[in-house]
Simulated scan of single mutants.
Amino acid sequence: MKGWLAWDSLSGEDGRMKQDLDKLEQLRSLFGEMERSLIAYSGGIDSTLVAKVAFDVLGDRALAVTAVSPSLLPEDLEEACIQSAEIGIAHELVHTHELENPDYASNPINRCYFCKSELHDTLKPLALKRGYPYVVDGVNADDLRDYRPGIQAAKERGARSPLAEIGITKLEVRQIAKHLDLSCWDKPAQPCLSSRFPYGEAITLAKLHRVGRAEAYLRKLGLKTLRVRSEGDTARIELPAEQIKEFVLTMDLPLLVEKLQSFGFVYVTLDLEGFRSGKLNQGLQLATVGDLPSV
């Protein structure tokens, strides 16, 4: 009977916290088995947690490396630098050139495969040169259940995904990050700017810049979770559904349109369905995705 009572006392929030802490210890143990590791560090919550735990365990034998390219917002790069300094981990920047690859720039449905190929083809030689036997990323357990062709590219190049290996989900990442007092624990997900374009529409430097400027402008207005989807000359703003009414009633819409047009858009629209991560994938036919080549 006492055993049942003890189990019941760990139900709910306490039980979830114990599970989170157990997984945190597993994550620490995993890094304890690594002599040195190089972290593919985007500055997002997932890779920040990985960098934090890697540094706590390995100290100066852990290195965070951020890939700089036109698809990375300058604001995100700045945050990555700030967060790595808060953690204390050594942090370096490298430049990647995925936009020069026609297989990437043409924006096929497996575009992310070519992006991660470029990333890990840059990081792996760097790791070997510096004496890091492992390159690790921030892929979590939920990512494995989504359409993520970039994961295959990373695996082909020997990268490891500690969060996914242990089975840490997106929610658990945030809960563990909060427990560790990481300032970015509630930071909205921010995939690369190339994810703002419908598959099949070519990605150019100018298009990336105008999307980036539009999103940066909206964030300065106090909006936190958003996307500016780009299709041809049209900007489609996505906000959480519950924020749409207030946005329409309080925003100076003519000024907003004028501003985004100054960035290069011709038309400015608002998505009435509201924000949903990965929305552009809804246009993919499941059969088509299932028939994609392994690359």
Rank of each mutant, 00 (worst) to 15 (best):
residue 244 I to L: 14
residue 228 V to Y: 00
residue 221 L to S: 12
residue 238 E to A: 15
residue 225 T to I: 14
residue 242 E to K: 14
residue 247 F to R: 15
residue 232 G to D: 03
residue 223 L to C: 06
residue 231 E to N: 05
residue 218 L to H: 03
residue 240 P to K: 10
residue 206 A to G: 10
residue 194 S to G: 15
residue 231 E to W: 01
residue 198 P to K: 12
residue 252 D to M: 12
residue 237 I to A: 10
residue 236 R to I: 06
residue 242 E to M: 10
residue 190 Q to V: 06
residue 205 L to R: 14
residue 220 K to F: 04
residue 215 E to I: 04
residue 193 L to Q: 13
residue 196 R to L: 08
residue 199 Y to T: 11
residue 237 I to R: 02
residue 248 V to I: 15
residue 196 R to C: 07
residue 246 E to A: 14
residue 253 L to C: 08
residue 255 L to Y: 12
residue 235 A to E: 00
residue 254 P to A: 07
residue 236 R to H: 15
residue 219 R to I: 02
residue 198 P to Y: 08
residue 209 H to D: 11
residue 218 L to M: 13
residue 252 D to K: 07
residue 190 Q to S: 15
residue 245 K to S: 08
residue 237 I to G: 10
residue 255 L to F: 08
residue 213 R to D: 08
residue 194 S to A: 15
residue 253 L to N: 05
residue 255 L to C: 08
residue 251 M to E: 06
residue 255 L to K: 12
residue 233 D to C: 09
residue 254 P to R: 07
residue 206 A to M: 02
residue 224 K to T: 07
residue 247 F to V: 15
residue 254 P to G: 10
residue 220 K to A: 07
residue 203 I to Q: 00
residue 190 Q to T: 14
residue 242 E to H: 12
residue 223 L to W: 10
residue 246 E to L: 10
residue 214 A to P: 00
residue 238 E to C: 11
residue 204 T to V: 09
residue 225 T to N: 05
residue 229 R to L: 03
residue 227 R to V: 05
residue 196 R to Y: 08
residue 224 K to Y: 04
residue 198 P to D: 06
residue 233 D to H: 13
residue 240 P to L: 04
residue 201 E to I: 04
residue 201 E to K: 04
residue 216 A to K: 03
residue 199 Y to I: 06
residue 192 C to D: 03
residue 216 A to P: 01
residue 222 G to K: 05
residue 237 I to W: 01
residue 229 R to T: 01
residue 218 L to A: 12
residue 194 S to Q: 10
residue 219 R to A: 02
residue 240 P to T: 06
residue 210 R to E: 05
residue 252 D to Q: 07
residue 201 E to M: 07
residue 239 L to E: 00
residue 212 G to C: 05
residue 230 S to W: 03
residue 219 R to T: 02
residue 222 G to C: 09
